[in-house]
């Protein structure tokens, strides 16, 4: 039963199988949480984002089919969209700073602290790019700015923005390919 593909679990889930939902949830919990956290930098908002994602999927407000590539890339796209929406929403609201300590974690406290320290040492792949490329990836992928906003912010012509982004993306891809080996 462990060999079931995401795609077939997804179809089972869409026909109302709660267990299939749970299997998929478990499989993606950690990946989606660290991914959402990269956008929101906040546990509470990350949880809201992930809840939104599963609500949409369970209710069929978004639909996956194999034309859209792999399930994993698709669910990350949905998560990214939800996280960007969340950031845009938060920006419109006065923020209330109730940081990280609001929940408690599944791990004991000391371990959590240790993991946090390690987390700052483990640099994510984006941090290995050249600074100007890092900034572009940050603005495009994680902040979701428009091309015009990026052009204004970096003082670059619109056309140049697109080519620079593309080369940053290619550089990141090379880096990530290198890591897998």
């Amino acid at each position: 039963m462990h060999t079931q593909s995401d795609e077939s679990l997804y179809h089972q889930m869409r026909s109302g199988d709660e267990q299939a939902l749970e299997v998929l949830y478990d499989k993606y919990e950690r990946l989606l949480f660290s991914f959402a956290h990269r956008f929101t930098n906040n546990d509470r908002l990350s949880e809201e984002v992930i809840q939104e994602v599963w609500m949409k999927i369970w209710n069929g407000r978004v639909d996956f089919n194999t034309d859209k590539g792999k399930f994993s890339s698709w669910i990350l796209t949905i998560t990214r969209n939800a996280a960007l929406d969340c950031l845009r929403r938060e920006k419109r609201q006065p923020t209330i700073e109730v940081e990280e300590r609001d929940g408690g974690y599944d791990e004991p406290v000391e371990r959590t602290v240790m993991q946090r320290e390690t987390a700052t040492e483990v640099r994510d792949a984006v941090n290995e790019l050249k600074p100007d490329q890092q900034e572009l990836i940050e603005l495009v992928y994680f902040k979701g700015l428009t091309q015009q906003q990026i052009s204004d912010q970096l003082n670059l012509p619109l056309g140049t923005v697109k080519t620079r982004i593309r080369s940053a993306i290619q550089a990141l891809r090379k880096l990530l390919d290198g890591r897998e080996r």
Partner: peptide, 27 residues
């Protein structure tokens, strides 16, 4: 290319501790 990068980017991120009870709240 942009979409294909999504998974490797996500996988390269440092893991975050999951808030207690998140799964039961969400499900």
């Amino acid at each position: 290319e942009m979409q294909d990068l999504m998974l490797p980017i996500a996988e390269s991120l440092p893991e975050r501790p999951i808030p207690t009870g998140m799964k039961s709240r969400i499900l």
